[in-house]
Simulated assay, not measured.
Amino acid sequence: MTQGAMVPSPCTQVCRLDRATGWCEGCGRKIEEIGGWMGASDAEKRAILTRLPERLRRLAQ
Rank of each mutant, 00 (worst) to 15 (best):
A5H: 13
A5Y: 08
M6C: 09
V7T: 10
P8W: 00
S9W: 06
P10F: 06
C11V: 07
C11S: 11
C11K: 08
T12K: 08
Q13G: 01
Q13W: 06
V14R: 03
V14K: 03
C15S: 02
R16V: 15
L17W: 08
D18P: 09
D18Y: 10
D18F: 09
R19D: 15
R19L: 12
R19M: 10
A20H: 13
T21M: 05
T21F: 01
T21I: 05
G22T: 14
G22F: 07
G22H: 11
C24S: 11
C24I: 07
C24E: 03
C24A: 11
C24Q: 01
E25Y: 05
G26W: 00
G26T: 09
G28L: 07
R29K: 12
R29Y: 05
I31V: 15
E32M: 05
E32H: 07
E33V: 03
E33Y: 04
E33L: 03
I34L: 07
I34M: 11
I34H: 02
G35R: 15
G35Y: 05
G36F: 07
G36D: 08
G36C: 05
W37I: 10
M38F: 01
G39E: 12
A40E: 05
A40T: 06
S41R: 00
E44L: 06
K45I: 02
K45M: 01
K45E: 03
I48W: 08
L49W: 04
L49I: 10
R51P: 03
R51N: 06
R51F: 00
L52D: 10
E54H: 08
E54F: 02
E54T: 14
R55K: 13
L56Q: 13
R57P: 02
R58T: 13
R58H: 08
R58M: 12
R58I: 08
